[in-house]
Amino acid sequence: MTDNRSPLHFFYLFLLALFWGSAFMFNKVAVDSIPPLTIAAGRIFIGALIVTGLALKMGAKLPRGRDQWVQCLVIGILGNVIPFFLVSWAVQHVQSALAAICMSLMPLFTLALAHVMTHDEKFSVQKLIGVIFGVLGIVSLFYGTIREVTPSLTLYLALFGLLATSFFYALCGVLIKNLKNKNPLSTSAAMLIMASVVIIPLALMLERPWTATPTVDALVATVMLGVFSTGLAAYVLFHLTHITGAVFVSYNTYLIPLVGMAAGYIWLDEALKSTYFISICFIFTGIYLAERRKSVPHPVS
């Protein structure tokens, strides 16, 4: 991948971080009166309607080959169904800002996955040092969280669920890069359609959403998740991944914790804890070390 980035690339990167960073606040609002699997199903279904509508309006044809649909099914499960449920469930037990910070580990997961699953984004000793700093960030995050609340199995599961979410997002990014179909509208629509086919029956069977009594705020939050954090975010994700690569896209996690913390602080009155900033420093240092380009000496004339 080239290092000469267009300003438009960075605009898309910021937009994706804004869509994803605000999702944790919306999940926190929605989960107060809507079950987590139902939230995930609702946002995926709304996202599928939006992206599929855009694809049809702009003349983008949906995939035709069975292999492409199977790939979109796998990406839909790993990149939407599982992580969307995990986030919605986890924010019941932790602050939305903490959930956003956990997403900042995605670039380090991406580095490791890209080494195994791609031919042009390989690992190195320098990147290993970056991963070590990322691990220190995880440790400080877990320590700070456990120190300030009563430890419980549910808390541990929520934290590990958030880390798993970051891993699944990273895996999804690498899988998207390897797709042969590079049309972002076509592939993102197919992904959300297949994810809807999987998650809607699960939500109906396991949570019986018709028995819930959602508030207006929860319904609005779910719609916002579907429109911005799922539908439009999926389109931007596919488009940006195809033109820049999975690792560059993972840099939006520099911004996601900041967006998530700001949203939680402004709209949910969540406290900004010192341990959050310490963990971010470790994680961002790890990402910088892992991705810092070695300078190439110019020949002396």
Rank of each mutant, 00 (worst) to 15 (best):
Q92H: 10
Q68R: 05
P63Y: 05
Y276M: 15
I39Y: 00
I287T: 02
T241G: 10
A48T: 12
E270H: 04
R293A: 09
K177G: 09
A233F: 12
V116A: 09
E270G: 01
A48F: 07
M224F: 14
T165L: 10
T38V: 13
V91A: 04
A271S: 13
T145A: 01
T213A: 14
L268H: 02
V247I: 14
L37T: 04
V149E: 08
L255P: 02
F84H: 13
L153Y: 00
S96F: 03
K273F: 00
S229Y: 01
L175K: 05
I34C: 04
Y235E: 04
L171P: 01
A221M: 05
V70T: 13
S196Y: 05
K122T: 09
M58R: 14
G144K: 02
V87M: 12
C72G: 13
P83I: 08
I266R: 00
L272N: 03
I280P: 05
W267P: 01
I287C: 00
V223W: 06
H298M: 08
S152N: 13
T275P: 01
G144L: 00
S124N: 12
Q95L: 07
S33D: 11
L128F: 13
F133N: 03
Q68I: 01
D3G: 12
A164E: 11
T2W: 02
H93K: 06
S166R: 11
C72S: 15
P297W: 02
N183C: 10
T244M: 05
M117K: 07
F10T: 14
L171F: 12
T253K: 05
P299I: 01
K180V: 03
T230W: 03
I193Y: 08
I75M: 15
S274T: 09
L225C: 14
F85K: 07
K127D: 09
K122C: 02
A17I: 04
P83Q: 10
L159Y: 06
L113F: 06
S140H: 11
L258I: 15
S188Q: 07
S279C: 09
A158L: 00
H242N: 15
S96V: 03
A234I: 06
G226M: 11
E148M: 03
M58H: 08
V227H: 10
A234Y: 15
P201H: 12
V81E: 10
L16C: 06
F84R: 03
T213S: 14
V259I: 15
P297Q: 00
T110H: 07
A114K: 05
V149A: 05
V81W: 06
A170W: 02
V70H: 12
T145P: 00
L62A: 10
K61W: 06
T241R: 08
